[in-house]
Structure formats: C-alpha cells, structure tokens
Nucleic acid binder design. Structure first.
Lengths: 236, 236
DNA sequence: CGAGCTTGTTACGAGATTGTTACAGCTTGG
DNA sequence: CCAAGCTGTAACAATCTCGTAACAAGCTCG
C-alpha cells in the first residue's frame, strides 16, 4: 500500500519506549513526507542510527536501558554519526535545565505533553537549520503551476487537477529543480527509485503524459535534446 | 454562512518600505477578500502584529530600521505571535540561502520580482496549510448534505437518514475537510484512532457504504486514485 | 440466547495506471 | 539535402487499484 520511494525522502529515526507515542509520531512524520525508522529502546536506536544513516534522530530522554541522553552522547562520539541532528523529548520542563547543564548534544528539545504537529514542525525547522542546502518546501510553484505536496494537490492557473502517483512525483521533482537540467537517469533515480530497472524511454512517455495534462503550462517543461528535460520559469 | 463584514475575514499584515509595492499588494489582497493592514517599516509592522492579531504577515526582507528578518524573529519569540505564518519577500534568489542560514522563521518566501497575483496565491496556500480547521462547527453542510453533530442527525436534501457510528465519523471528517484530499492513512488515524491496526482496504468498504446511503449525494465523495478520497463542493 | 445490526476482512473483476515497443517526425551534423 | 539519432505519439500488455459483494466475528437489545 505504500507509494514507496526510498531515494530522496529524509529518514527520521525516532526512539521512545511507549509504543503509542512511537506510532503517533511515526504516522505524523510519514504524513509530512518523511521516511521513519522506529526504535523501542536506546540500544536499537543507536544501532539504527549507525547503520541507516538517518537525517535526524528524535530521542525520548527517559528510556529503560540506554537513555536518550546516552544515545546522543554515543552518537556525538563517533565521526560518522556526530553530525546527525538530535531532537530530545523530555517529560518535564525542569528536566531541561539539568540537561542543558550537562551540555547535551541535542539540537533542540520538546517537553511533554506535545502535539505531533509540534514535533513535525520542530523536525522540519531543525533540518532546515542544519541543512541549508536542501530546503524542503511543502509548497511549490512555477509559473501557473502550484503544488501542495502535503495535500497532494496540483493547481494550474488556480484550477485543481488530478495527477497519477508517478506523474505527481515527476512533476514535483522537476519543479523543485526548476531551471536545472535533469537527465533521464537522474529522473529515473529520483522518481522511480534506486533499484529500478526501467527503460529511459519510459521517462519520455511520462513527460508526454504530464505535458498533456498540464495544458497551457506544458511549455514549462523543456526538452534538452540529447540530455533530458528541464522545467523553466516563464520569462517575464 | 454570514454575509457579514469585517468579523470573519482574515487580516493580513503587509510591510514594505516601498509605497508602490505596499499599495499594489494591499489592493490585490483586498480584492481577494482579505482585510489588509499596512506598515511602512519594521517597527510599525511589529506593533500592528502584536495589537491586531493578523492571520498572517507578509514581510519585505530589506527594510530600513527593523528588517523583515528581525521582525519575524521577534514574532517567533513571543507565544502570542509565534504561530502567525510569515511570508517573506526577498530581492534576490541568493538572499534566500543566507536567510536559511540565519534560521529564518518564515513559512514561505517569494523572490522579487513577483506578481501580486503570485503573492495572493502564496498567502492563500500558506493559510490553507497552517490552519487545520480551527473552528469546530456543530453544523456542517456540503452541497445537499447537512449534519448536526449535536443531534447526531444527517439530512440529504432535507430527508433524514440513519448512519452508523463509523459512517457518521467518516462523513463528518470528510466534510470538515471538504475539498482537501485525505489519504487512507489519515482517515484511519482520524476516524478509527491512531492505535488501530486496521487494513486500509477497510476505508474503501466504509466509503462504499457511505456512498450507498448518500444516494444522490454520493458523487460528493471523490476517489483520488493512488492517494485516497476527497469530498467536493458540488459547485465545481 | 438469538436475531439483527455493525464492522473488518477477503475475493474478484472492471477499469485505470504504467512500462514497453514500434513508428513517424524532427533535429543535428556533415 | 541526406543520414543518423532523438524525441513525440500511439498502441498494447502487465500490473495495480478500487468498487462490489459476500462472509464472519462482535455487539446490542429484546
């Protein structure tokens, strides 16, 4: 049932010993477009962080066994994992003071009770802060084309249109790299996924289908003969 | 339901030191149905934002005195204003990189030159995104469907109908988010609860039962292949 | 208890989606 | 202008998705 696309989505590792909290966070993060790795305890979290190279780690401070604090410390110790941002969940506000006193390696923290929405916002903002190169915008717009990735909605000149899963993905990839040439290989990789064994001509077919649906905005997808395709902003 | 004046229109605060830009934006936003507050500099913008409780703030990045960036930071610092969405106007695309590095609190940004129309679209989409049904109405109505949540009553074209608990919940969730796509996962989460371990196909079944009972209004529930379902207002 | 209702699961078929292929038209370089 | 190579287009088959119906388990209420 998943519209899976491992390649260019960010992986978030979350660790909490309460299954409910874990599921809730996972669901909301997935809904916000992240891939999620779940860990029920500190040991598992540490292992996953080392093997799966997540973009970010969300840790519950209080866990049986390895606490979130210890996991964070371990991560900071090794070069391979030392730069992974850490968002710490803490039960009480006054715990934070102690943590800060301990020179916690967390990039941000949230005190319980928190709303899942808040966590998602924090995760996004920490990612934005720590990875200036890749801004993840939910809202894309190029010329008359507007895309809301969260709602999976596309509007052409204000009018809502439906796209299939593949078309949608292809469109958003082109839009977020507007102005830059995308080779068929890159598109195959980022739209269809790493291990796909798909003919490059397939890209052409989907580009055609995209253009057909885009109607007046079809011109925004340029063909660069011999290389691939490029979305262009309309010249004013 | 009300044709009334100021009360239920959204207030947008715009700040720019160029009078021309300010007027142009104000005009277009008013035309789009918003109330507009104008500020010529950062200080005034900050004051208005604190006293007038706007739904959203549009800030020019470069202003004499307090810059848009500083205003945004100030807003984020205080709980009363920290949740107001910020749309930032920037002169050049490469300014954006610097902004991101500076931990911008903006929800979206637009680079100059921009069309007023584009700003209006952005404002609308940011508002759509950041305001997930703040009003909980007892009375819902979409097309010929009318729901009274207190009496637990549903009327289709005036005729009363019985719905089961699940059907009722599903219907109201769809109605309150009329026009917006709901994935099966979201529906499972919001109708069945997040700890439920239920197959996504179950959603399909209940959608079908809903449509069956809705009769003439069945068309109001759209299927968005590959993603989920959406309730639409019949006017479109 | 038991009939009837509610609800989640499952099977299946129609139809949509999608990758492939063939071919025609176009661009490019000589 | 021609030949070679790309790309646009259309058609096709494999696959996937969703609507439909049937079924079984659970629940309610007499």
């Amino acid at each position: 049932m998943s519209l899976s696309s491992k390649s260019n989505r960010k992986r978030i590792l979350i660790a909490d010993d309460e299954p409910d909290v874990l599921s809730l966070l996972a669901l909301n993060l997935q809904r916000a477009g992240f891939d999620v790795l779940k860990a029920e305890d500190g040991e598992k979290a540490l292992n996953l962080a080392r093997t799966e190279n997540p973009s970010m780690v969300v840790l519950d401070l209080m866990m049986p066994g390895l606490s979130g604090l210890e996991v964070a410390k371990q991560l900071k110790l090794q070069p391979a994992t030392s730069r992974i941002p850490v968002l710490m969940l803490t039960a009480k506000a006054d715990e934070v003071d102690r943590i800060v006193g301990l020179e916690l390696g967390a990039d941000d923290y949230v005190t319980k009770p928190f709303s899942p929405r808040e966590i998602v916002l924090r995760v996004q903002s920490v990612l934005r802060r720590t990875e200036p190169a890749t801004v993840v915008a939910d809202q894309l717009s190029v010329g008359v084309i507007q895309v809301d990735r969260i709602r999976h909605e596309v509007r052409i000149a204000g009018e809502s249109l439906d796209f299939t899963a593949t078309e949608f993905k292809l469109l958003t990839v082109l839009m977020e790299r507007c102005g830059r040439l995308q080779s068929r290989e890159v598109l195959l990789n980022d739209v269809w996924g790493y291990e796909s064994v798909i003919d490059t001509r397939t890209v052409d077919t989907h580009i055609r289908r995209l253009r057909e649906k885009l109607g007046v905005a079809a011109d925004l997808i340029e063909t660069v003969r011999g290389f691939g395709y490029r979305m262009v902003a309309p010249s004013e």
